[in-house]
Computed example of a mutant assay.
Amino acid sequence: MPQTPLLSVVVAVYNGELFLAKFFACLEAQAIEGMEVIMVNDGSTDGSMAIIDAWRDRFPGMLVIEQENQGVSVARNTGLAVATGQYLSFPDIDDDFKPGMYRRLLDLALASNLDVVTCNGNYVYENNRKPSRPIFPEDKLQSTGVMSGPAWLKKALDSRKFLHVTWLNLYRHDFIREHGFKFEPGLRHQDIPWTTEVLLAAQRVQYTNERFYDYYIHSASVSHKPDTDDTLIRSARHYIKILEMLEAINQRYPEQVKNIPACNWQIAKEGLGILHTFNNMKDPQKKKMIVKEFFDRGIWRLIWKNARGFRLRWRLGRRYLKLKKATRVPG
C-alpha cells in the first residue's frame, strides 16, 4: 500500500513559461522525500505544458491536470480535490522559495500537530528598483509558540501589517477536508476570505519569522498593470464580494469574532479601498453605475456598521457626500 505523502504541493499554472523552470528548481531544492506535486494547467496558451513535461522525470508521480482557463481559485480547487498528502501548500509559480522552507515548516507542523504553520518572506522588486523588505516587519510580528487560530489572527491583524496569502503557509489536509474549505471561484484576492475563515476555525497554529519566500513584484503580474475605468470596476466588484464574504464569515464564527475587533476593522479598511477605487475613475457615467451598485447591495451600510472608532468613521463620513453626488450625475 503506497505511503501517504507528507506534503502535497498544489500549483495553478496559467501562461507561466517565463517562471516554471525556476519554480521547479525551487521545488526540487526542498528535498522532501515522497512529495506529491500536482500541476494544474489552467488553459495556458504558451509553452507551459512543454516545460512541465520536461520536468516530469525529476518528480516521480507528478500529477498533471489540464483544464480550460477558469482562474487560480478553480485550479487550486481542482488540485485540492485529488491531493493525498498529510499537509498542503499552494505556492505561486512566479515567486522564489528557499531550500529548507517546506522541511522547516513540516518539522514544526508534525511536532505539534498544527492545523496551519506559517513563515515570513520578503517583498522583492523587479530590477531591484526598491530594496527588498520583510513581508511581516519583525518588530510587529515575532515568532510564536503554538496558539489558537483566532489568537494568531487577532495578533496578526492587530499588527496592521498582515498579508492574507496562502503561499507562506502549510495546511493540515484533514483540517481543510473536515471543514470543506475551498477557494472562491472567479474571485481575485480570494486569499483574504480563505485565510480569515481558515484561521477562525483552526485550533493549533504557529508562526516563525524566518524568511523563506520571496514575493516578486514585477511588471508581468496582473495586479501591477495600469488601471482603466473598466479594470477599476472589476476590482471594486471583487472587493464588494470579499466584503460580503467577510461579513458572512464573521456571522459564522460569532464567538471567535467578538474577541477580535480587527475582524470588523478589516471590512471597513477594505471598504475604504473600494472608495479609493471610485475616486480614480474618470468616466462619470461608469462611476455613477458602480457607486449605485455599491449602495444598492448594501455595501455602504456594511462598511459603516463595521467601522469602529471615531477616526475611521470620520474618514468614511467625509466620502459619503461625494459618493451620493456621484450617483446624481445626469444621464
Rank of each mutant, 00 (worst) to 15 (best):
M49C: 09
P226R: 11
W314P: 01
A268D: 04
D158G: 08
K322W: 14
L312S: 11
K258V: 15
E68I: 03
E184Q: 15
Y207C: 05
Q30E: 12
R308S: 15
E28L: 15
Y216M: 06
P2S: 13
P2D: 13
T4A: 14
L170T: 06
L110I: 12
S143P: 05
K154W: 02
W152V: 05
I217S: 04
H238N: 15
R237F: 04
L63I: 15
E210P: 00
V222L: 14
R104W: 03
S219E: 12
I32W: 02
F59M: 07
L243F: 07
L157R: 07
D53P: 02
R160F: 03
F175W: 09
W55S: 09
I217L: 14
R188L: 15
F183S: 01
N259W: 12
F136A: 09
R315N: 14
F162W: 12
T327P: 01
V165G: 03
K155V: 07
A201K: 04
G79W: 00
K161Y: 13
H218R: 14
F24Y: 15
G16N: 04
V116R: 00
L141P: 05
D230I: 09
N113W: 06
N280I: 05
I233W: 00
D94P: 09
S112V: 05
N264H: 12
W314Y: 10
T118W: 02
G317N: 03
N264Y: 07
E247N: 11
G47K: 15
S148A: 14
L6V: 04
A21V: 10
F278Y: 09
I267F: 01
S132E: 12
S44K: 03
S132A: 13
R204F: 05
I176L: 08
A111Q: 10
K282Y: 05
S48W: 06
D96V: 04
G309E: 08
L20P: 00
G121V: 02
V198K: 01
P150W: 00
G298N: 08
D57R: 14
T4I: 15
P99D: 07
S8C: 09
F162S: 08
T195K: 00
D283S: 09
K98A: 15
K287A: 07
K305G: 06
F212K: 03
T144Y: 02
W300Y: 12
S221V: 03
W300V: 04
N113G: 10
K287H: 08
Q86W: 03
Y320E: 12
V37E: 00
E33G: 08
A220K: 10
R58V: 14
A83V: 01
V72K: 11
K292H: 07
S89L: 03
R133Q: 15
Q30C: 06
E255K: 11
P254T: 05
R103N: 07
Q3Y: 02
L110C: 08
L20V: 09
Y125A: 08
S219M: 05
C26G: 05
P284R: 06
P261D: 10
R188K: 10
V205Y: 01
